[in-house]
Structures are given as C-alpha cells and as structure tokens.
C-alpha cells in the first residue's frame, strides 16, 4: 500500500483528476479553489496534458464542452459565483449528452459573498444544470482523502451517464491539509465513444453534438433518455455513510464538512447519554432516500445540519415524507458550525 502524504483538498482534487486520466483542464481564477488550476498548470504538462486559463467561467465551461465532445476526460473547477456563470454550459452539456467533471469549492453567498466555507450551493448543484429539465450528478466528500477519491471516480461516472458530475466541496475542505493515500496513475482511456467528434473520420459517418431539437417529440425523447440515466444512477450510484448509535433516538443529517462537525457532536452527545446517529449523504443527487426513510420510523426527529439556511433539509423532508419532524441547524454566509453548537441545539430540540 502506498504511503500517505499531506495534501490540501485542492491539491488532492487536482492529483485525483490527473491520476484518473484527465488531461484537459480549463479554468478561471476564483478563491478558494485557486490551487486546483495551479496544480493542473504545473503537473498536466508532465503527463502530456493541456491547461488553458480561460477569460471567464463562461469560456471555461464551453472549452470543457468542446474538449468533452472529442471524448476526452476534461475538468474545470470554480467556486460559487463562477459556478453560477457555468450554468449555461452545464445545461448545454447535459442537453448534448456530454460528460465532464466540475468541482465547486463552495463559498459564502449570495452575490459576491465571501470566501468562507458554505454549503449554500446544494440546490445549484442538485437542482441546477442551468435551464431545462436537468441536474448534476453530485458527490460531496468530507475529507481530503475523499476529495481525491471522488474526483478520481467522477470521470468514469460522467462517462457512464454522459452527464456532468459535480464534486461539491467548500472553502474549508479546499484549504485544509490531511494525509492522503494517492491513487496510482492510469492512462487516459481511448476515445472510442460512438458519439465523439474530431480526429480522422476515416470513412465513418459524420457525428453531430447538439442540443437543438425543434421537433418537440424528439426533444422529449432526449429528456426521457436523460431521466432514464438518472434513474439508473439512483440504482447504482447512491452512497452514504452512517455514524453513531445503532439505537439512536435522534438523527443528524449532514454532508461534507458539516458531517465532520456532527461526528464530534455525536461523540459528545454520547458522553452526555444521548444516542444520536449521523446519516451523511455522499451522493447528493442521486439522494440516499432509503436510510432516511428507515430511520424516520425509529427516531423522534431528524435535524439537518448544514452551512446554509436550509437546502439539504428539503431532500431530507422529501425522503422522510412526514414520518417525523425535521428541523434545521444551520449557519450561512461563511460562518462555521461548531460541535458545541450542534450539541446544544440537539438537546434543545429533543
């Protein structure tokens, strides 16, 4: 087994991408994710890859669109305001059935906001691939190791479902250092997709990458195809972690950095004789409905702990379907939660 190395979340993302076979990265500077393009600019040329600094996030995501159309593994990264700008391109990629990986190191918002940690882009990720009937397959790591691993895995998932995959981090995960066991580098896969354009046609039929279908029935067929892939993802890609008491009286729902806070809070609550359990969605879309459905029959309430004014909570409520109350413990705008606060609020709500 390889030795572990200390690495920041941003660098672990970038290294995970390169290890996975990503050779093309287009991005535009924005804090707190700047170390991802920095790492890519330094290391992609070593493996024959290409880094392009775009003039805007609009351009980055459309460069990604072009590179993805050739069948290549391609990635961009940004932070909240930049991801807003990329919504157009994401919609076109989904409509054109193109895979890519987009990393969002979420910061405080709305507007220019700040560069503090936040989870207020949950909706933007899980409800938004811009306009139209789409969304992004979204995964939310809670450690530097998971950032590395999920970025590595994301490319294959994107190819499998021919759709953008979003890795949702935050300012804190982006910047903190933890030990990481690095993946072995693998070669970029051959670009043998039957839809990929470019290169020499050598007599094959010409190919068109397109999201314009003026025939409404053909357009609906595309939407049905996308929906079918999302259904397939619900079968295969749902991931979550559970932590804490097997006979819990209360459940905390949290993902990403908030889940780290909750784990400490659950340990503290246990010392005070309160049995709590964490359900940590790792795939945010597709959402892990099953554990929430199950636990909603067994506990008095569920508390959604998140760095937003209540976004994850909506998916939790949809999963719970009214079987128990669901409350919010949240901060927003870059303010961090503490375990003590989660402990106090849990005791109040019990």
């Amino acid at each position: 087994m390889t030795q572990r190395v200390m690495m920041t979340g941003n660098n672990a993302v970038a290294e995970g991408a390169i290890a996975s076979g990503c050779r093309y990265f287009c991005g535009y500077p924005i804090t707190p994710q700047n170390d991802i393009p920095k790492y890519m600019a330094e290391h992609l040329p070593e493996v024959g890859g290409v880094f392009v600094q775009a003039e805007s996030e609009l351009a980055s995501i459309n460069m990604v669109y072009g590179a993805a159309a050739t069948g290549a593994y391609v990635m961009t990264s940004s932070s909240s305001p930049g991801i807003s700008l990329m919504q157009e391109g994401l919609s076109y990629m989904l409509g054109s059935e193109l895979p890519c990986v987009v990393v969002n190191m979420v910061r405080g918002g709305p507007g220019l906001g700040n560069i503090g940690p936040a989870q207020s882009d949950y909706w933007l990720a899980t409800r938004g691939a811009g306009h139209g009937d789409g969304r992004c397959l979204t995964f939310a790591p809670d450690s530097v190791q998971e950032l590395h691993d999920w970025t590595f895995e994301a490319f294959g998932i994107a190819q499998k479902y021919r759709a953008p995959v979003m890795i949702l981090g935050d300012a804190l995960l982006a910047g903190m250092s933890e030990p990481v066991r690095l993946r072995e580098h693998r070669e970029p896969p051959p670009r043998d997709q039957e839809w990929a354009v470019g290169g020499l046609r050598e007599g094959r039929q010409r190919r068109i990458v397109n999201s314009l279908w003026t025939d409404v029935e053909v357009m609906e067929e595309l939407n049905q195809r996308i929906a079918a892939r999302f259904s397939q993802a619900r079968e295969n890609e749902v991931r979550w972690e559970e932590y804490g008491a097997d006979d819990a009286e209360i459940v905390l729902a949290a993902y990403g950095i908030s889940a780290r806070v909750c784990k400490t809070a659950i340990d503290d609550l246990a010392e005070d004789g309160i049995k709590a359990r964490l359900i940590r969605p790792i795939s945010l879309f597709p959402f892990p409905v099953e554990p929430f459905r199950e636990w909603s029959e067994r506990v008095s309430r569920i508390i959604s702990v998140e760095l937003s004014m209540g976004q994850l909570i909506e998916d939790v409520r949809l999963a719970v379907e009214g079987r128990c109350p669901v409350d919010l413990v949240g901060h927003s705008g870059g303010v961090m939660l503490t375990p003590d606060e989660v402990v106090c609020r849990t005791k109040e709500l019990l």
């Binding site: 093309y24 609009l58 980055s60 669109y65 072009g66 993805a68 159309a69 354009v197 990458v209």
Partner: peptide
C-alpha cells in the same frame, strides 16, 4: 463532424476541441 455551441461561445468550444 459538428458541434452546436451556445450563443456566442463558439470560439471557446472550438478552443476545447482543438486543444483536446
């Protein structure tokens, strides 16, 4: 072969194709 681009984004899409 052809790629349909969003309004105004053709040169960015072309950049991606050419670089890859």
């Amino acid at each position: 072969d052809a790629v349909q681009a969003a309004h105004g984004r053709g040169p960015a899409v072309a950049t991606g194709i050419k670089r890859a």
